[in-house]
Design a binder for these strands. Structure first.
Length: 263
DNA sequence: ATGACTACTCCCAGTAGA
């Protein structure tokens, strides 16, 4: 079973790319972020026509997340618990059956947090604390769980082409990385890091300053696996070439393969 | 000389992203 995540930076602007990518890579489950539209405006039909079930949690103009699955959703629920005042559409979880059980997927769009020193950074840190509480609770079920999305976190220096450029940025400050490490310490596995220890694997290249042709990228899109998902790990990768498509998103898809038939 | 950003919105200059 392939599970993928992709910040599409407007699903309506990127629909052709989404359809091409789904046809080419055929993920079983895809998590989309920054759909930038309300639920009624999501282009469901062309995606359903490829055999996907679709659930969305959108909002006007900004944010918005969606889950696509070849298998029906047994359940789905929007909103990260822990703050009734948080109106941003940044979280959507779904449960999907596979051959021998279920897998729970949380599609998330973690706040950027810039500029540092404003309430935006406080919101990011609080959101990460809430995410850890959510994960801690879900891990008690001892089931396959995948937290997938745009975390807006550069986990380590090897995850940036120019780490010095990010030292004062909300994506890389020590407090940000510490909270990401808290998730790992709960027992979650960074799927890309289960595949390779190398640096130079990026998922985002800014539109500005020729970041893509210069390969000045960062790795900020992640899939975190519970132990029961990590036990089924069969590979992970980044669909890097998608960044070179005309009018591309600034992010590219990241995926993990889980073999639920093994063992 | 410089690899000059993109998408959204009460439609267009301001905001957000990272």
């Amino acid at each position: 079973m392939r599970i993928a995540t992709w910040n599409v930076n407007s699903v309506r602007q990127r629909l052709d790319h989404v359809v091409s990518w789904l046809k080419a890579t055929a993920p079983d489950i895809a998590c989309l972020q920054e759909i930038k539209c309300v639920d009624d405006a999501f282009p469901r039909e062309p995606i359903e026509a490829l055999g996907y079930n679709v659930v969305t949690h959108g909002q006007k103009t900004f944010n918005g997340v969606a889950l696509l699955s070849r298998h029906p959703f047994e359940e789905s629920r929007p909103m990260l618990p822990g703050d009734g005042e948080d109106a941003h559409a940044r979280f959507l979880e779904g449960v999907v059956a596979h051959g021998s059980g279920v897998v729970r997927i949380a599609c998330l769009y973690l706040p950027n947090g810039n500029p540092v020193g404003t309430d935006k950074y406080t919101y990011k840190l609080n959101w990460m604390t809430r995410l850890a509480a959510y994960a801690r609770e879900r891990l008690k079920a001892e089931e396959p769980l995948v937290l997938a999305g745009d975390f807006n976190v550069i986990p380590a220096a090897r995850d940036a082409a120019d780490p010095a450029a990010w030292v004062n940025d909300a994506l890389y400050l020590p407090q940000t990385r510490e909270r990401f490490q808290t998730l790992i310490n709960l027992g979650l596995t960074d799927a890309l890091r289960a595949a390779t220890d190398e640096g130079g694997h990026y998922t985002f290249w800014d539109y500005q300053g020729g970041a893509w042709p210069k390969n000045k990228g960062i790795r900020i899109d992640h899939l975190l696996l519970s132990p029961q998902a990590a036990d089924r790990f069969a590979g992970a990768g980044i669909d890097r070439h998608v960044r070179g498509w005309e009018k591309a998103s600034d992010h590219v898809p990241v995926w993990v393969d889980l073999d639920f038939a093994a063992g």
